[in-house]
């Protein structure tokens, strides 16, 4: 069973806020799923030989490459952002957050 601290740590890694109720129920769900996928440890893979390269190639990850897009399309993409300025996406402050309940 994952601890509630571990669930908080995972939530922090994937940048999601959780309510206490969500945290409790996800702790239970994730623990049960991790228990299930742990069955893969039974498979002694070190002893297995991979002999057929063609099968391996089919599931190998292949790389994507970047292609340019028209300026108008890029502008429309930026328009979808909640906040933008001078055709750039803008955000709230990145540093110097004041603790809640204080000013300045």
């Amino acid at each position: 069973m994952l601890s509630s601290e571990e669930v908080k740590k995972l939530a922090s890694l994937v940048k999601i806020s959780l309510t206490p109720e969500e945290s409790d129920s996800l702790q239970k769900d994730v623990s049960s799923i991790v228990g299930y996928i742990s069955k893969l440890q039974e498979l002694k893979l070190a002893d297995e030989l991979i002999t057929d390269d063609s099968a391996v190639d089919l599931v190998g990850l292949r790389s994507d490459w970047v292609i340019g897009i028209p300026i108008a399309e890029a502008k429309n993409l930026i328009k979808q952002a909640p906040r933008s300025e001078d055709n750039l996406i803008s955000t709230k402050p990145i540093f110097n957050r004041a603790p809640r309940g204080t000013s300045g």
């Binding site: 939530a11 994937v14 999601i16 969500e22 996800l26 769900d29 994730v30 991790v34």
Partner: peptide, 12 residues
């Protein structure tokens, strides 16, 4: 909730 569940498993 399902998305959050899978995000947590992925991070784990």
């Amino acid at each position: 909730r399902e998305v959050k569940r899978r995000l947590l498993i992925g991070a784990y």
